[in-house]
Simulated assay, not measured.
Amino acid sequence: MASDPKTFVFNDVVIHNKTKDCWLIIEGKVYDVTPFMEDHPGGDEVLLAATGKDATDDFEDVGHSDEARDMMHKYYIGEVDKATVPKKRAYVAPADRKYNPDKTQEFVVKILQFIVPLVILGLAFVVRSYTKEKSA
């Protein structure tokens, strides 16, 4: 016999609004998506923006695949007491809403890998043109 799912009140769920501790409410269910933060195709910012509220509309508006919906089961941790969920809530930015330094660093490295060879090639072209003019 399966145990009853744990029931959380809204205020206990919304405090989990950081990259290393992120819970979402979708269709009355509570999901701890912390392990999925780095792997989410839309980035961790999307998940963080869905904290502090009922994220059902956000989730449905994106049009997630059946695969994504099946994946949710492994992050399920319980239900939210719907009576504790406010009808409308003002936006509150998560506490650690900063850029992801790892992703920024990856981006910089990729750009440098592209630009440095172009700069070297351009310098070689300039030097070659300059030496041809001097010898002529």
Rank of each mutant, 00 (worst) to 15 (best):
Arg69Gly: 05
Ala90Ile: 12
Tyr76Gly: 10
Asp70Val: 11
Val80Glu: 01
Tyr99His: 12
Met71Pro: 00
Glu79Thr: 10
Lys87Ile: 06
Tyr99Cys: 09
Lys87Asp: 11
Tyr75Ile: 02
Tyr91Cys: 11
Asp96Trp: 05
Val80Leu: 02
Glu79Ile: 09
Lys87Ala: 12
Val85Ser: 01
Asn100Met: 05
Thr84Cys: 00
Ala83Ile: 04
Arg97Cys: 06
Asp96Gly: 05
Thr84Ser: 03
Arg89Cys: 10
Arg97Leu: 11
Lys74Val: 05
Pro94Val: 04
Val85Ile: 03
Arg89Ala: 08
Tyr76Pro: 10
Arg89Trp: 00
Pro94Asn: 05
Met72Arg: 05
Lys98Arg: 09
Tyr91Gln: 13
Tyr75Gln: 04
Lys88Asp: 15
Ala93Ile: 08
Val92Gln: 14
Tyr76Glu: 13
Tyr76Thr: 11
Tyr99Gly: 13
Tyr75Phe: 12
Asp70Leu: 12
Lys98Tyr: 13
Ala95Pro: 04
Arg89His: 06
Met72Ile: 04
Tyr76Trp: 13
Lys98Ala: 10
Ala95Gly: 13
Thr84Tyr: 00
Pro94Thr: 02
Pro94Gly: 01
Lys88Val: 15
Glu79Arg: 08
Tyr99Leu: 12
Met71Leu: 09
Asn100Ile: 05
Val80Gln: 01
Asn100Leu: 07
Lys87Arg: 09
Val85Tyr: 02
Ala93Cys: 06
Lys98Phe: 14
Ala83Gln: 10
His73Arg: 08
Pro86Lys: 10
Arg69Ala: 03
Asp70Met: 14
Met71Phe: 03
Val85Met: 01
Glu79Val: 08
Arg97Val: 05
Asp96Ser: 07
Thr84Met: 00
Tyr99Pro: 07
Asn100Glu: 06
Lys88Phe: 15
Arg89Lys: 11
Asp70Cys: 11
His73Thr: 07
Lys82Glu: 15
Asp96Asn: 07
Ala95Asn: 12
Ala83Val: 06
Lys87Phe: 08
Gly78Thr: 05
Ile77Gln: 01
Val92Gly: 11
Thr84Leu: 01
Asp96Glu: 04
Lys87Thr: 09
Tyr99Asp: 12
Lys88Pro: 10
Tyr76Asp: 07
Pro94Ser: 04
